[in-house]
Computed example of a mutant assay.
Amino acid sequence: MKTIYHKSDTRGHTDFGWLNSYHSFSFGNYYDAQRINFGTLRVLNDDTVAKGRGFGTHPHKNMEIISIPLEGDLKHMDDMGNSTVIKAGDIQVMSAGTGISHSEYNKSQENEVKFLQIWVIPNEQNVTPHYDQISIADVKTKNSLYQILSPNQDDSGVWIHQNAWFHLANYDNGITDSYTLKNERNGVYVFVLNGEVEVAGQKLNSRDGLGLWETKEVSFKANSKVDILVMEIPMT
């Protein structure tokens, strides 16, 4: 097994006043040659948007873009005619493909909105753009991993154009669990949302990240009440 540890306070940071963003990988004005990506996981941004503010209409192309709200309500509009609100307990995906333009705003005039913005490099170029949004309430389980994304349209969660599987877990203190990779050539990137957890023996705290590859299985031990995101992605 090989690993790479990204402590929360080593992430890149951008603060525009209305947007406070931490970058696990190089993004915008933050560049680190050692942190361009982890396999096909290209972007993992931890965003906080001020009340009533947001991202104006802007384009994307040939990227799988996943949004996972953590707090508050995020208003989404795009040139495919979608006008939706995503909130904690939802997951949204856009396959940008040949091109899509969209905007994202904090719907609230009273509270911040916090969400993860994740980009995955697709395994197909110039596909027809695709949008999906679901509530994960129906698949959520306690003290075990539950799938929220896969490459399969008929699977649990949303789907993307890449052989990737995302899972969430909400563990109580002392719970142990494990994840078996779908493909042994893939890697796993674990991002801690809250709490303390040991991943393959490595202690992680809130907003730490750990990449693992050349392994068949990844073990977890919760050292507190903890929420984690587990992303299996191709390494090439």
Rank of each mutant, 00 (worst) to 15 (best):
R207E: 13
R35M: 04
M1N: 06
S144D: 01
P59C: 15
E64R: 12
N62H: 03
L210D: 02
H102A: 10
S8A: 14
P129S: 07
H23N: 10
G39N: 11
G157V: 03
T57P: 13
L149D: 02
N62I: 01
F220C: 04
L70Q: 01
V49Q: 07
K182F: 15
K2D: 11
G54W: 07
K182Q: 15
F38L: 12
N170D: 15
R53Y: 13
N29Q: 03
L193P: 00
I36M: 14
K140L: 06
Q202M: 01
P129K: 10
T128M: 01
I160E: 11
T40A: 05
I148D: 03
N143G: 05
E232T: 04
F38N: 06
Q125S: 01
R42A: 12
I136G: 07
Y171I: 10
G99T: 11
E196I: 13
H102K: 05
V188E: 08
L229A: 09
N205W: 10
W213I: 01
Q202D: 13
I160R: 03
S219T: 14
E110M: 06
K107N: 12
N163I: 09
N205G: 15
S150A: 00
K140W: 08
N173V: 15
N183F: 11
A200Q: 04
T84L: 07
D138K: 12
F27L: 06
D227M: 14
I36S: 11
D90T: 03
V188R: 05
V190S: 00
N29L: 10
F38T: 06
L210S: 00
D227P: 05
Y30Q: 14
D154K: 14
G157L: 12
S178L: 10
N223Q: 10
I65V: 07
V230K: 09
D73F: 11
P151K: 09
F115G: 09
G72Q: 08
S67T: 14
E196P: 02
L70Y: 08
T176G: 06
I134P: 01
D9L: 03
P129Y: 15
I4P: 08
G72D: 11
I228H: 05
T48G: 04
S95Q: 04
I36D: 06
F38I: 05
L149G: 04
F16Y: 03
A96T: 04
L116T: 00
M1H: 09
I134R: 08
G195K: 11
D15K: 05
D155T: 10
G39I: 09
N82M: 06
N123I: 12
N123M: 13
V197W: 00
L204T: 05
N186T: 10
Q147G: 00
T10H: 13
W119Q: 06
R53I: 00
E214N: 12
